[in-house]
Write a protein that binds this DNA or RNA. Structure first.
Lengths: 161, 161
DNA sequence: TATTGTTATACTCTATAACTATA
DNA sequence: TATAGTTATAGAGTATAACAATA
């Protein structure tokens, strides 16, 4: 495929190297990173107009699906440190898409909710995301392939199952 | 019981949200990122002793396989900007693992080569990588699954084929 | 004492512009 | 003019420590 000068290296070097080093094509982590970069590139281009970054997208989706959770709970689900979540949430709140509400039961915590404007914004986001996702599924070759990919990515991300 | 009815969201809210937003489990980019993070975490732990980061690993592998290429050629293959490649190569050279050689044909460019120490270091790297990679293949369920994953990741990364 | 949100800080990775020396 | 390597710099993303308010 795209292996460039792989087939015709100097014979000594090639055979010696072949026994010593894996081609980068065999390195799962490397392939994962390249694929993720390519998918994020399409995502960023798709959402340039709405000015939504992947992290903001995921935060808004979680607040929409699970309104009332506190910051730490949203941050934990996404693997974001609570310290880093603050600026992210500040920006979302400043744009009027979601808000922090003081909890009655625990005055330390803020529960997170979409604003009406945020709900409308999420509908636009969903349409843009759908197009993006369909492009990725097309690259993969269809829904069946996509399902198989998700299964394998879950196995990598959650070794315990 | 501050969390009240978390597992049983109000039906209106839940069904409404379900039609408006994708669960993050359906977002290929998100799943890719989480899997890549998990794999890199294992990689970083595996290579902590050798103090090799993923980018350094890939650079050393490419220099080993294609000695004599110039900086831009290595950087381009890995999707690294030539400006960012400088510090990376500085560090590798400072550790005595590879070296820049002035080219006779084009005095602007540096051709890259492993040092003898770098070649020995790469053999150690290979053994560590093999263990890491085997763990990832085990997570996936075997070599056949791994091959399928690589195929799909290539489709995402190289939409043209 | 422990936890929630916050600030400050630092380190990595990435992206761009501009310089130098060669071509 | 253009290219290879370099420098400087700025922006994200991420990690840790410490503090105030509250539990």
């Amino acid at each position: 495929m795209t292996k460039g000068g792989d087939e015709k290296q100097g014979e000594d070097t090639a055979s010696k190297a072949a026994t010593l080093f894996p081609p980068m094509n065999d390195v799962i982590g490397y392939k994962l990173r390249r694929a993720q970069l390519a998918v994020f590139q399409d995502f960023l281009a798709s959402f340039a107009k709405l000015k939504v970054r992947p992290a903001e997208f995921s935060v808004l989706v979680l607040i929409a699906q699970q309104p009332g959770l506190k910051q730490t709970e949203i941050a934990d689900q996404l693997g974001i440190k609570r310290a880093n979540f603050v600026a992210l949430m500040d920006s979302i709140e400043k744009r009027g898409l979601a808000e922090r509400r003081k909890s009655d039961s625990d005055k330390r915590s803020h529960s997170l909710h979409l604003t009406p404007r945020g709900a409308a914004f999420c509908r636009k986001m969903f349409a843009v995301w759908r197009d993006h996702e369909d492009r990725m599924i097309a690259r993969l070759g269809g829904d069946e392939e996509r399902a198989r990919l998700i299964t394998m990515l879950d196995r990598l991300a959650e070794p315990g199952g």
